[in-house]
Amino acid sequence: MATMSFSIPDDVKDRFNKAFADANKSAVVTKLMLDALDQIDHKRRSDKAVRRILNRHAKNKGPYISTEEILRTRDQIRAESDSAHGIRRK
């Protein structure tokens, strides 16, 4: 097992020691570090996915459809479906 040394503000050290007085502090710090590493990995994967989506979007030469048009179409489909099923909405 390795040993690491960090400099932290005294108030953070005091709060940490108080909050985890009865805990294995090495285990707590290890868990916090693993959580931070997981968050970094998740962010990297998310950023990569966003870049892929944006690249696909940039390459797409299809017609632009506005949000309003999408919502109108959605409402029309819902109305047709409701009508077919005898549902009335106010």
Results as ranks from 00 to 15, higher is better:
I53C: 00
I65V: 14
K13F: 08
R15M: 07
Q39H: 12
L32I: 13
R72T: 13
R56V: 00
K13C: 11
A79D: 10
N24F: 05
K59G: 09
K13G: 04
F16G: 09
K59F: 02
R52N: 06
A49G: 08
Q76K: 15
R78Y: 08
A58P: 00
S5P: 00
H85F: 11
E69P: 00
A19I: 03
R56F: 03
D41W: 00
S81E: 05
I77T: 04
P63I: 04
S26N: 04
K48E: 14
S83P: 00
A19F: 03
R52V: 07
I70C: 08
L32T: 04
S5N: 11
N17P: 08
G86Y: 07
D14H: 09
I53S: 07
S83M: 12
A2W: 01
I77W: 08
D22E: 14
R72C: 05
T30Y: 11
K43L: 10
V29N: 03
A58Y: 11
Y64T: 09
H85G: 07
S66M: 07
N60E: 06
D41V: 05
G62I: 00
P9F: 02
R74E: 11
R51I: 14
F6H: 01
L71R: 14
F16L: 11
K43S: 05
D82Q: 02
L37Y: 14
S46R: 01
R45K: 13
A36M: 07
N55V: 07
K18P: 00
R44L: 13
K59D: 14
V12F: 11
D38T: 02
D41H: 02
G86L: 05
L32M: 15
E80I: 08
S81G: 07
M1V: 10
K90L: 14
L34M: 10
S5C: 07
H57L: 13
I65Q: 11
K13E: 14
N55T: 09
R88Y: 06
R56G: 10
V29L: 15
M4A: 13
D14P: 01
Q76R: 15
M1G: 12
Y64Q: 12
D82E: 09
A27M: 06
T30V: 06
D82F: 08
A19Y: 03
D22N: 15
T73G: 02
P9M: 00
M1L: 06
E80L: 14
I8W: 02
I40S: 00
H57Q: 14
R51Q: 14
T30W: 06
I65G: 02
F6M: 12
F20P: 04
A58S: 05
S26F: 01
R15P: 01
V29W: 05
N55S: 11
D38R: 07
R89A: 03
E69I: 00
P9T: 01
R88V: 12
K59N: 13
D47M: 09
G86D: 03
R15L: 10
R15F: 07
M33V: 15
M4D: 08
A21L: 14
H57N: 10
A79I: 03
Q39M: 10
I87W: 08
I70H: 05
S5V: 15
Y64I: 01
R88L: 12
D11E: 06
F20G: 06
M1Y: 04
M4W: 13
A49N: 09
M4G: 06
N60F: 04
D38C: 07
D35C: 01
A21W: 07
L71C: 04
A2E: 10
D14R: 15
